[in-house]
């Protein structure tokens, strides 16, 4: 290949192994600590001598873990679904037609990433309180029903969709709605699915908005529950790591199964916290 590639890759492997270790060790350490019995917690042993699930039992009894995982799942699922629906429709509208005001409206989406959360949080909090949506799933979901990021990403995807197929559908007399459902969506299933994974992961890991919306632990999501657990029992490291592991496990399972799509869509979209 190239002059750069003629080198033997041993040095590269060393660098990448170091980087991988730095990336993985903390997560490994979380799981290992969560499996250690109380008398081993403070040892630096890389494996538990007598692995136990006691920490999990304690953590799950201490905070309403199941309830919060359920809330998080419902929130992330509903939010992902709504964001997919609104952004598929919008991306389709923007990519098929040039209409008066379309550039302005599209610009509104492109500019949202400049608006920091902190510049909108107080009025949104007030609105939410007026709607009576504090401590509700509605309050967690509805304010995030549109995702500018998803619209922009899907717009690119829709733009590259072969125009001939759309035209063929049109000649067949299909309406724009029919073309969307019968021609466009079936062909873009993979792209939409990987966007969906991305949105779900971001929603699952969301912290800022739930912190504002929920004040009762049983109405809250797992991230907030974990933080509350940390403030209550800050030195119960075993149960704390068990709670953190429980909060991460669903996402890690998704990652292990779908890591190629996950990585590709993250890298393609640049960055997203």
């Amino acid at each position: 290949m190239t002059s750069l590639a003629h080198r033997r890759p041993i040095g590269s492997h060393l660098i990448l192994i170091t980087l991988s270790l730095v990336a993985v060790f903390p997560i490994y350490w979380m799981f290992v600590t969560s499996l250690k019995p109380a008398n081993e917690i403070y040892s630096a042993a890389l494996l538990p001598m007598q692995p136990t699930l006691d920490n999990y039992a304690f953590a799950w009894s201490r905070i309403p873990m199941l309830r919060m995982l359920g809330n998080t799942f419902a929130m992330a699922g509903a939010q992902t679904l709504l964001q997919l629906i609104t952004s598929v429709l919008a991306a389709y509208g923007f990519s098929r037609w040039q209409f008066p005001g379309s550039r302005l409206l599209f610009g509104l989406f492109a500019l949202t990433w400049l608006v920091p959360f902190q510049a909108t949080m107080i009025p949104n909090y007030v609105t939410l309180t007026q709607f009576g949506w504090r401590n509700t799933l509605m309050g967690l979901i509805i304010p995030n029903m549109g995702s500018a990021f998803a619209v922009l990403l899907l717009y690119q995807t829709f733009k590259s969709f072969p125009q001939e197929l759309v035209d063929a559908g049109r000649i067949d007399g299909a309406s724009s709605w029919g073309i969307l459902w019968q021609v466009v969506l079936p062909n873009l299933r993979a792209a939409i699915a990987s966007l969906g994974i991305l949105l779900f992961i971001s929603a699952w890991n969301e912290y800022f908005w739930p912190l504002l919306v929920t004040s009762r632990v049983e109405d809250s999501v797992i991230q907030i529950g974990l933080q509350m657990f940390l403030t209550q029992d800050s030195s119960l490291w075993g149960p704390l790591m068990a709670a953190a592991s429980s909060a991460s496990l669903p996402i890690l399972v998704v990652y292990i199964i779908l890591q190629r799509q996950v990585i590709e869509s993250f890298v393609k979209s640049g960055l997203r916290s």
């Binding site: 350490w29 600590t33 912290y207 990652y255 890591q259 190629r260 993250f266």
Partner: peptide, 27 residues
């Protein structure tokens, strides 16, 4: 090899901020 490293190096990005904070507080 690249695919394996990719999967490992990317892992932290999957972790929620609170989980990351809790882990590092312990480490």
């Amino acid at each position: 090899a690249r695919t394996i490293y990719r999967a490992l190096v990317f892992l932290p990005m999957m972790m929620a901020p609170v989980v990351v904070a809790v882990i590092w507080r312990w480490i």
